[in-house]
Amino acid sequence: MNFEFFSPVSDLILAHNELLSSQALGKKIKIHSSQNGFPELEGVDIAIFGVLENRNDVNYIGESFDLNEIRKTFYSLYPGSWNTQLADLGDIEKGETVEDTYFALKSTVASLIKQNIIPIIIGGTQDLTYANYRAYDNIMPMVNIVNVDCKFDLGDSTKPMKNDSFVGKIILDEPYNLFNYATVGYQTYFNSQEEKDLMESLYFESYRLGSVSKDIALVEPAMRDANIVSVDLNAVMGSELSLKQKFSPNGLDGKEICAIARYAGISNKVSSFGIYEYKPSKDDEMTSMLVSQMLWYFIEGVNCRVNDDDFSDENSYQKFITLVDSQELVFYKSNKTGRWWIEIPFLAEVNNKLKRHTLLPCMHQDYIDACSNIVPDRWYKAFQKNCV
C-alpha cells in the first residue's frame, strides 16, 4: 500500500484527543500522525480515511475543506462491546488532477480489501464512488452498489463526470462489472422521468423515501447483497444538519440514516462504505456528530455480523417452495438469524457472470406475497438481469 497518498491527522485533533477519557474511541484507534507515522495495519479490521476531493462538484467554486470536526466528535464517542481493531489512516489530499485522486483512492481501497480490511471513506463529492467501484476490477467479477441518495445520479454519461452523474459512467465504462445498483431514499421530484425509465429498463432497484421511512427494514435485503455502500449526506433532511449542509426539507432523519448504516455493517458482503458530500461550516457540530454516529453504527453492525448464508448444512436452514404463475419459487430461512433468501434459477443457455448469485436476500414478506401469487419484485428484477 502506498503511504505517500496520505497526510497525517492534524496535531490539533491529536492534542484534543489527549484530553479524552481513556475509554473513548480516540484512545483505542491506531492513528496516522506526523510524530508516529503511518499505523501498522497488522490485525486492523476497519480503516477510516478522508478524501479531500471536491472538484467535480457541479457547484464547485474553488473551496477546500477538512474533516477535523468529524474526527473530533468521532474520537470522543465510546465504543460498543466491539472486537474490531480500527485505524485512522489520515487523508488522501487532492491530486494534481481529479484522476490522480481517483487513482490514489482506487489503489488504496483495492489494497485494503485484499488485506481483508474494510475501508470507510469520508469524502468530498460522491463521484469518488466511481474510483471505489473501479478498485474491485481485479477482485471480483460482479459488483453490487447501494446508493443512499435523494437522486439516482445517472446523469448524461457522454459529458464529463460530476457528483450527480457518476453512475452513468459506472454503467457504461469498461470493464462492465456492475450487476445491481439500488438507490435508497430517492425523492421523485429530484429525478427526471428519463432517469426513472432507465432505472426500470436496467432492472435496477429504487426505494422511495416514503417507503423507507414507513418500513426501514425494506433496506436490509439490498444491503445484505451489496459490496459497496455509498451515502450522500444530501439524502438527510435539512433539519438534521448544520447550516451549510442543508439541502432539502424532506429526507431521511438521523435515526433512519444510522439504522441504514447499521444494516450496511451487518451485511457479510459489504466490503467498503463511503459517506460523501460533507461540507463543514462554522456551526458544524450537528453534521459532524451525525456522520460520527453513522460511522459508529456501521462499525457496530460489522461487530454483529453472523455467517448465516452457508446452506450446505441442512440443519442450519428451512426450505420453502411455492408456486407463482406456474413458476416454482424456492425460499430459504436461516435458523440462526431468521433472515430469508430466494433462489434465482440458472438459465443454462445464457452465458453470464452470475454463477455466485444463486441466492438473493429477501424478506419474509416476499414469501408471504409469493404464497398469495405475487411475484417478489427483487426476484423478478434479478431474474430479468440473468436473462440479458
Rank of each mutant, 00 (worst) to 15 (best):
E194G: 07
T358C: 07
N147L: 09
Y207L: 15
Q327N: 11
N36W: 10
R262E: 14
L41V: 04
V146R: 05
K114T: 13
K385S: 13
I61D: 08
K162G: 09
T101F: 02
S206Q: 14
P361R: 02
Y278P: 01
L86P: 00
I257Y: 05
I344K: 12
L359C: 03
L252H: 08
E285V: 15
N234P: 04
E69N: 11
F247P: 01
T358R: 11
P141C: 10
I48D: 10
G210Y: 14
K385L: 15
C150H: 08
Y263Q: 05
V330C: 14
Y380I: 15
T287A: 13
M289S: 14
K106Y: 00
L86Y: 13
D310F: 15
G274L: 09
T183Y: 05
D11F: 05
D232E: 09
P221S: 02
N351H: 10
E96R: 11
S76L: 06
G185Q: 12
G124H: 09
K30Y: 10
D215H: 12
K196S: 04
I61L: 07
D156E: 06
A261L: 08
L233S: 05
V58L: 09
N59Y: 00
D308I: 11
L172R: 13
K244D: 14
F3S: 09
A135R: 00
D377M: 08
M223A: 08
D173A: 08
D283W: 10
K162I: 06
K162H: 05
D284Q: 11
E194L: 10
S7D: 04
F320G: 09
V51K: 01
L198G: 04
S34M: 08
L112G: 02
A261G: 01
K196I: 15
D153G: 05
W82V: 02
F6V: 00
